[in-house]
Simulated assay, not measured.
Amino acid sequence: MHRFANPGRFLRLADAVLPWCAGLTAIALAVGLAAALFVAPADYQQGESVRIMYVHVPAAWMALFAYTCIAVASAAALIWRHPVADLAARSASPLGAAFTFLALATGSLWGKPMWGTWWVWDARLTSVLVLFFLYLGHMAISNAFEDPGRGRKAAAILALVGFVNVPIIKFSVDWWNTLHQPASVTRIGVPTIHPSMLWPLLLMGVGFTLFFFTVLLLRMKSELLAARLRNLRMLSVEGR
């Protein structure tokens, strides 16, 4: 891990990984969307509206995964003062917020025909909404101080404190009586979803994950290059 605290070494790694990650992202999403729209059958109860699942569920998975990545990177930044880990946490935050918003929006669109309402203050829905606000808070607080170091430290602490919401989201449907259905893919034993629907869903999950890493690397690379450019400008000004 400490080897990649060097920005130059990280940039070389990103340059090597990005083309593969971007190519696999395009393939996984293209095949996954085609399978979700044209291969997977309609649900016997929900009809064609079940196809929202192929976007909603991977977006919800990524909302939790991105925040977990932010919490791990924030811990590394606080404990070892790892500069690239701190950059990864700040770069992942807008992506996680976007996934969370997508999960909330598609869940609302799916909930209207299934539940008869756009929104309920269900334990799962409410905890995901809290997660969205945590993302917004993380982005806001990292830029709320004149001293960038203080902002980064405050954002890292918020990420670690807010991580308690992740298991609440995961297990809320088991701990409380909620309207949201329990897990059907990650449950212990055989998933309660037919293989004809399961493999397109998992493929979309892989595509969303690869998309996250592709954009994350691009954001981190652009931030590092921008910082290097600022340093060069400062050196040129001082040289005059």
Rank of each mutant, 00 (worst) to 15 (best):
L109A: 07
N165I: 00
A103R: 04
L229N: 15
D174P: 04
L217W: 09
G96M: 07
I157C: 03
T209L: 10
P195D: 08
A77K: 12
P113Q: 03
W61P: 13
L217Y: 09
S142M: 01
F65L: 15
G205K: 04
L37S: 07
G96K: 03
D86E: 15
Q46A: 04
S222K: 07
I168G: 09
G207V: 01
A76C: 10
P113M: 02
V164L: 11
P195L: 09
F213H: 05
W115E: 02
A77H: 15
W115T: 00
Y54F: 15
V173T: 06
L134I: 10
T100L: 04
A36V: 02
F10Y: 12
S236M: 12
L95K: 04
Y67G: 01
T214W: 13
A89C: 01
R9S: 12
S74E: 08
W199R: 09
P7R: 10
T106K: 07
R90S: 06
M220N: 06
P41Q: 13
S222H: 12
L202C: 11
A140F: 10
M53S: 10
M62R: 06
L18V: 01
W176K: 08
A26G: 04
A75Y: 11
R152L: 06
T25L: 02
W121Q: 05
R230I: 09
L33E: 14
G23M: 05
L179R: 12
M234I: 14
A97G: 04
S184Y: 15
T100A: 10
A98D: 02
A63L: 09
D174L: 14
